[in-house]
Computed example of a mutant assay.
Amino acid sequence: MTPQTQEFVAPVLPRLRAELDRLPLQAARVAQVILADPHAVARMSIADLAERASTSEASVTRLAQRLGQGGFPELRIALAAESVGEAVRPTITGDIDLDDATATVKAKVLADVARSLHDTAAALDDAAVDAVADAVVTARRTLVLGIGASGTVATDLARKLERIGLPALALTEHHDAMTTCVALTSADVLVAVSHSGETIDVVGPTQRAAAAGAATVALTSRPSSTLARACDQVLLSIAGTETAMRPAAMSSRAAQLFVVDVLFVAVVQRDWERAEPLLSASWEAVSARHPDRRRG
């Protein structure tokens, strides 16, 4: 697999939401001002933004460059374009309170998941998806690594690939992952799932797989994480807002599963002649137990 180039620049607002809690203090102040009103910031001068964030113009420039922009002028242009979509999207924000009615909880969770999926769709690099799908179709086998809550996402992708006849295995335990990854070769693909990109039990086996010559893919919310830097390709998922009642394991899952579905469809498109009869056969195999189901 050809390593991912730096040509793709993820949209600014999803990237800021994904990395806000990892930014240095001065950069975080700028990011908070931007996220509070991106449309207004797009009309500010760099001096105005620095003053509003109680920081220096140099800090504004450094944040712009961290986001893949050449400087503040390019950041303003990006914000102007992205804030149009932000303005027309309904906003229901805020943590879920203990006394919230069920209807309010539904509205808040729905709004957060919808934003997470929208941001992920915008931030996901099409070229990266294509490169990973190409690699999976031709791989000797695909290993999907995830620990804890990410393990359910890893299992979902592995089972999907198995269903269309592609050799795949979910690795959801660290020792098993480590001993499996040291035996990989350049004919294999490892997809590593971690919201933070810093989970030791995911990063360690991934680094082993890379050293063994396997193609490596990070599915993460953190494009600058240790995991992302260790991999050939990065599939970016933007988690929802982490709160006391919706920890990262919950807020990141919908976006990760969205990326899994996009990747799976891309794989099926490339391997339709093999996939179609197997998908049909699996549907037929269980249809008798679901008499109410009709083939779409």
Rank of each mutant, 00 (worst) to 15 (best):
residue 124 L to A: 11
residue 108 K to C: 11
residue 103 A to R: 14
residue 72 F to S: 03
residue 260 V to D: 14
residue 28 A to Q: 15
residue 180 T to Q: 12
residue 296 G to A: 14
residue 120 T to L: 10
residue 14 P to A: 09
residue 205 P to N: 05
residue 216 T to H: 05
residue 239 A to V: 00
residue 104 T to L: 09
residue 72 F to H: 07
residue 56 S to P: 06
residue 191 V to G: 00
residue 58 A to G: 09
residue 16 L to G: 07
residue 51 E to L: 13
residue 296 G to W: 11
residue 83 S to W: 10
residue 289 R to A: 13
residue 152 T to L: 08
residue 290 H to N: 10
residue 145 L to E: 05
residue 21 D to E: 14
residue 293 R to H: 09
residue 248 A to N: 04
residue 41 V to W: 08
residue 67 L to M: 13
residue 4 Q to C: 04
residue 144 V to L: 01
residue 248 A to R: 04
residue 36 A to H: 11
residue 47 A to P: 01
residue 262 V to W: 04
residue 87 A to Y: 10
residue 259 V to E: 02
residue 67 L to N: 06
residue 222 R to L: 02
residue 24 P to L: 10
residue 107 A to S: 15
residue 247 P to V: 15
residue 154 A to E: 03
residue 2 T to E: 13
residue 239 A to S: 13
residue 153 V to S: 14
residue 143 L to Y: 10
residue 234 V to L: 10
residue 90 P to D: 08
residue 168 A to R: 06
residue 73 P to E: 09
residue 181 C to I: 03
residue 258 F to R: 08
residue 6 Q to G: 05
residue 230 A to V: 01
residue 196 S to F: 04
residue 112 D to V: 08
residue 275 A to F: 02
residue 270 R to M: 07
residue 70 G to C: 00
residue 290 H to A: 12
residue 50 A to Y: 11
residue 44 M to F: 12
residue 210 A to H: 08
residue 190 L to M: 10
residue 229 R to A: 15
residue 87 A to G: 02
residue 262 V to D: 04
residue 51 E to H: 12
residue 33 V to P: 01
residue 120 T to H: 09
residue 59 S to W: 05
residue 157 L to V: 10
residue 18 A to E: 03
residue 219 L to N: 03
residue 86 E to I: 00
residue 229 R to W: 00
residue 112 D to N: 15
residue 95 D to L: 09
residue 38 P to W: 08
residue 292 D to G: 13
residue 275 A to T: 02
residue 286 V to G: 08
residue 162 E to Q: 14
residue 146 G to F: 02
residue 79 L to F: 11
residue 89 R to C: 01
residue 225 S to C: 03
residue 134 D to E: 14
